[in-house]
Amino acid sequence: MSEISKVLLLVGSPKGENSVSNNIASYILEKFNENGVKAEKIFIVKEVRNDEALNELVLQAIDAEILILVSPLYVDSIPAINIKVLEEFYKVKNDSYNKKQSFMTIFNCGFPEPHHNDLAIDMCKKFASDTGLKWMGGVTIGMGPSLEGKSLERFRLAKNLCTGLDMAVDAILKGETVPQEAIVIASKPLMPLTIVKFVMCNFGRFMWGNQMDKSVKGNMFDRPYEL
């Protein structure tokens, strides 16, 4: 039985429950729960709407022994709503608290190359350092949207991701540091990059064209602003 008392997963996608981040967080949550560890999941987007809810979220985050942020990448960085939480956490933690906590992050982006997430991971590592949290590492995932609405366990392309996350959870349960090997395995590209890049560059117009609303089909390249 693990001695870990409380794990909190922060789902940092503005899309909330219908997000890839939630998919990944749910997978991790289940792994902890299977092992008898109390793990909770909070959707940041629901809690940043007012100061009271935000404050409550920050207090819950400060109370957790293991804090895991699962987030998409927005504009090379952490989405604004998550920065808000980190800023508030920093203020409260520095003012009043001195508890042993560990922090891990998992970022996913729409680009095929996982390394686009590296800077967001660096910022989270800096946040951990500035707030006195023990840094456990950051997983980077490319082609995030391909995980949308899928069970990670049953999705063949997510095999490495699941293996790496399993290793990370096992280590956390034993009270150990997340091994670098787990981060490396979980961060492997879902598919060979050469193939994905070729498809995205050459068939992107068709793929996005299919997602366009009927009323604006063919308007993908619109320039609504006169320059």
Partner: peptide
């Protein structure tokens, strides 16, 4: 931002 991609697929 709510991450809806509406600015690409609804109101380009």
């Amino acid at each position: 931002c709510i991450g809806c991609f509406g600015c690409w697929i609804k109101t380009p």
